[in-house]
Nucleic acid binder design. Structure first.
Length: 520
RNA sequence: GCCGCCUUAGCUCAGUUGGUUAGAGCGCUAGAAUGUGGAUCUAGAGGUCCCCCGUUCAAUUCGGGGAGGCGGUACCA
């Protein structure tokens, strides 16, 4: 213990909520994003990219205050003391881009983009401070048809990724409907309104009983922490419960008519409720707008063959965002997954969006209608993993050409080149070649299908040794004795130097991979 | 933010009723075996026992505070 003389070592550690990405994760993600992109392109969307950093004020309502800028976003000051922030989503930067290039952009403007976004908040299981989103938006399209297209595109994307019909659903709702109902409750306080919406949004997570607690006085979670409720009266809660229960109805038609009757009215209410809901909404058209938009969307997608097993009206779909002004929609996965504790859990939402007619106005002063959605790439990835839709299409590790004789490096390099030209991953051992066993060990640990051995003997005879490491690994299970192991050289065979590429190509692992590539 | 649990070797974790050299397995390095992976055997390297303060002759161990990790919940543009 008397050795504090050493300089303090730097601790290797990750910033919390940030992660290194593994080769298999990167490959699987790239593949998945390629599939999403194909669908988006088919729908006529073009890619566009904006930078990670934006001026903080461009991102939204977050303005830096003195020394602790915004919670929630990563911010820093530029040389000129202006506040910059890492983007926290892809929508706000798009709004900035559109506003800035307003004259050049042809509306309706259909674009998609993907990339990392950053949130400075506490990470949780499956939630990180840097994560990837994939967005598509139509700017300058006021009609319901644009929203309908977004929903259909989401549905198509799910299926392109191999998620079967019935394993997902696109849920649609309209904020105008909910807002109107809340207005009849005379809720003027924005905070209370938000807590009501949030409570409704949690129906999936907690169930109706807990949602009612959240709408009323509050709820205690399992760690003993208490969440304050929205403070609605029992009467109002009952009313909302009825509205939410529309989802259990069979036909979309029934759901729509329940929604149509959802607005509390003096006339239609039973005794006791009369007079309580003094609806000033009566003359307000917001509710009926929202309701008929839902009806229109429903008709549009239905006519295109998207029935309720793919796109359905759902009164519990809220999307807690403040900037949505009309339609909201989200892609929800319906299958169960087993979590670390062995419990069955529904996977839930993997992406969502809606209509945001006010975002661009912040820059231009002119209202520009827009609708779009965002896919949570890593969440969707782990969902696909659960579905086994990610065929472990692992790329085979490279062939390792061993270095037996340092003066022959040019020859080894030539073998590598030949293999590469044939489309086979290959590399010459670049470590210290002194210990030959090390080279094979390296090849083994990398999972190489084969190692190539050529020393002076082989060069003299014009041959090379090919060691099939996969076959060898199998054989090793039955060999206990090291002498036998060494002398048998399982999986090893020799061939003429000029047959090298042909023989390697015949190895099962390589052959399979080549065929797969051909198929593409 | 609030609530709960946790922190000892690169990793997973024992352990010390407060006492002199703090352990295991895995991994790593080297050798047995210098042109053959695996298995086996031998040896070695690797520790501020999360940090600070307090109690004590003595703290990795006890007390207080802090930080970090995990989980729940809230927030989530």
């Amino acid at each position: 213990m008397a050795k504090n003389k050493k300089p303090n070592k730097v601790k290797a550690r990750l910033v919390r909520g940030f992660n290194d990405r593994s080769p298999s994760d990167i490959r699987a993600t790239n593949k998945m994003m390629g599939q999403i992109q194909e669908v988006f392109e088919l729908y006529g969307f073009d890619p566009i990219e904006t930078p990670f950093l934006e001026y903080t004020d461009a991102l939204g309502k977050f303005l830096p205050d003195s020394d602790r800028p915004n919670e929630g976003v990563f911010s820093l000051q530029d040389e000129d003391e202006q506040w910059l922030s890492l983007r926290y989503d892809l929508t706000a930067p798009l709004a900035r881009h559109v506003a800035q290039n307003f004259n050049e952009i042809t509306m309706p403007y259909r674009t998609y983009r993907s990339g990392f976004v950053f949130r400075n908040e506490k990470p949780g299981p499956g939630r990180f401070r840097q994560f990837m989103q994939f967005d598509a938006d139509i700017v300058g399209a006021p009609g319901v048809a644009a929203d309908a297209e977004m929903c259909m595109m989401m549905a198509d994307t799910m299926e392109a990724l191999g998620i079967k019909r019935g394993d997902y659903v696109i849920r649609v709702n309209n904020r105008k409907v909910l807002d109107s109902i809340l207005q009849t409750f005379h809720i003027s306080d924005e905070g209370q309104k938000l807590s009501v919406l949030r409570a409704l949004d949690k129906l999936d997570k907690f169930g109706i009983a807990d949602v009612k607690l959240l709408l009323g006085d509050g709820r205690k979670d399992e760690s003993g922490d208490f969440t304050k409720g929205a403070g609605l009266s029992p009467l109002e809660i009952n009313y909302l419960e009825q509205y939410l229960s529309a989802n259990t109805l069979q036909s979309q038609h029934e759901v729509l008519s329940t929604v149509a009757n959802a607005l509390p009215r003096k006339t239609s209410d039973k005794e006791g409720i009369e007079g309580f809901f003094e609806s000033q909404m009566y003359e307000d058209s917001t509710f009926s707008e929202g309701e008929s938009e839902l009806e229109e969307l429903q008709a549009l997608v239905y006519d295109n063959g998207y029935e309720k097993d793919r796109i359905k009206i759902d009164t519990t779909c809220v999307r807690g965002l403040e900037y949505y002004t009309g339609m909201v929609y989200e892609a929800k996965l319906l299958f169960d997954v087993t979590n670390e504790k062995g419990q069955k859990v529904q996977f839930g939402s993997v992406g969502g969006g809606g209509r945001y007619d006010g975002l661009i106005k912040r820059f231009t002063g002119q209202a520009v209608p827009a609708t779009g959605f965002s896919i949570g790439v890593s969440r969707l990835m782990s969902a696909l993993k659960n579905l086994d839709r990610l065929e472990a299409q692992e790329m085979p590790a490279p062939i390792i050409v061993c270095v037996m004789d340092k003066s022959r490096i040019a020859d080894y390099q030539k073998m590598v080149s030949e293999l590469r030209n044939a489309g086979i991953r290959a590399e010459m051992y670049q470590g210290n070649p002194k210990n030959f066993g090390k080279q094979l060990q390296y090849a083994d640990r990398r999972g190489s299908p084969a190692a190539i051995i050529a020393g002076s003997d082989e060069f003299e005879q014009g041959i090379v040794q090919i060691k099939d490491l996969i076959v060898g690994k199998e054989a090793s299970k039955n060999i206990e004795d090291n002498e036998q192991w060494k002398s048998e050289r399982p999986g090893q065979f020799e061939c003429k130097r000029d047959e090298l590429v042909a023989k390697i190509s015949e190895l099962p692992a390589i052959k399979k991979w080549q065929e797969k590539r051909q198929a593409k």
